[in-house]
């Protein structure tokens, strides 16, 4: 039926997007890149390479082949996880670096997104249901301020207040250097202390979006005749809200949730830089500053992959929740 076709179509679309990004990546980093591809790809080392070493690089990445030949080589490498080595990290493989920096970012952005999602949706429901109440006006004001404030600015304010002035939290980093034994309670609290301010910053930054979307979507739904019908039939107010209104109003939020998770791994560059938090955001920043192209290319690919994957998830969840979409 329609459902299967819809799912297949969405998966095909995701693959086409991925392919387009791979092609773009290839041209951006191999074909259009300025100058000698060898020194470009091995920046920082390229000029010091011996002739043999140059030949090895050319051989390894198939740089002597035609564009088409290079492309097939590139695709093969990409799909086998051979993403090159970082010049900044002295030859460590891009894949390994990525996974080293992934966990802290997942922790930071994952926790922040969860918090702002739960709190924002809860506030949005309460606000929309009691439109015009003190709570509604208060949270509207609060959210608009947060929504319009740049994250790095909020981060710097919190950093100045709670770390520099009050000294409650460390000024940055992911874990203190003197705490080494992983898995102990001491290590755990140390990591949590380092996480607190960046998580707070990001959670506050994301909050407004969830809140505003949930509130307006609930208000839309509350104006629908099926809500009035439910009331006229005698559905209790509590159930009007939970069974009819929220269930439908959550639909647009599902998309936002999935997309936010798509941005989780690349999403926190400014905050990670402000708090010197060693995650993928800071890594990206470092790679840009160091012109580490292999690393950048890998990161670019991972970020795109995450966005495409969560887009797909969002489409599929939406179709599961909303029977109308499957037919569309």
């Amino acid at each position: 039926m329609g459902t299967r076709q819809y799912v297949i179509r969405k998966i095909v679309q995701a693959f086409v997007t991925l392919l387009a990004i791979l092609i773009f990546n290839f041209f951006l980093f191999r074909v259009w890149s300025p100058g000698d591809p060898v020194s470009f790809l091995t920046r920082g080392q390229g000029f010091n390479l011996s002739l043999e070493e140059r030949a090895a690089v050319i051989e390894e990445y198939g740089l002597d082949k035609s564009t088409w030949g290079q492309f097939t080589e590139y695709m093969k490498d990409t799909f086998t996880g051979k993403l090159g080595v970082s010049s900044f990290y002295q030859g460590e493989s891009v894949m390994a670096i990525f996974f080293r920096f992934l966990t802290p970012t997942l922790l930071l952005v994952g926790i922040s997104t969860m918090i702002s999602m739960v709190v924002g949706i809860w506030m949005g429901i309460r606000s929309g249901w009691r439109r015009g109440s003190k709570f509604d006006r208060g949270s509207m004001f609060f959210s608009l301020i947060l929504y319009s404030m740049p994250e790095f600015w909020l981060g710097m304010l919190l950093l100045m207040l709670f770390s520099s002035q009050l000294g409650w939290f460390p000024v940055g980093g992911r874990v203190s250097t003197n705490v080494s034994s992983m898995g102990t309670l001491e290590y755990f609290t140390d990591v949590a202390e380092h996480l607190f301010l960046p998580v707070l910053t990001l959670a506050l930054g994301y909050l407004g979006e969830f809140y505003l979307l949930m509130r307006s979507s609930l208000l839309d739904v509350l104006g629908e005749d099926y809500i009035t019908t439910a009331r006229a039939k005698g559905v209790l107010e509590r159930n009007v809200l939970n069974r009819h209104a929220v269930r439908n109003a959550l639909l647009p939020t599902v998309t936002l949730i999935a997309l936010s998770f798509g941005y989780v791994i690349g999403g926190a560059i400014t905050v990670e830089v402000v708090f010197s938090y060693q995650g993928l955001g800071l890594l990206t920043y470092t790679a840009i500053v160091a012109k580490d192209y292999w690393l950048l290319q890998g990161l670019f690919l991972f970020f795109s992959l995450a966005v495409i994957a969560f887009n797909l998830v969002s489409d599929l969840v939406y179709a599961y929740l909303d029977p109308r979409v499957r037919e569309a």
């Binding site: 629908e224 005749d225 099926y226 009035t228 019908t229 439910a230 006229a232 039939k233 009819h244 269930r247 439908n248 929740l321 909303d322 029977p323 109308r324």
Partner: peptide, 15 residues
């Protein structure tokens, strides 16, 4: 006492 509205699409919960 039951009510029927103008727009049947809007009066039915899509889910």
């Amino acid at each position: 006492v039951q009510m029927v509205f103008q727009d049947p699409t809007g009066s039915l919960n899509p889910r």
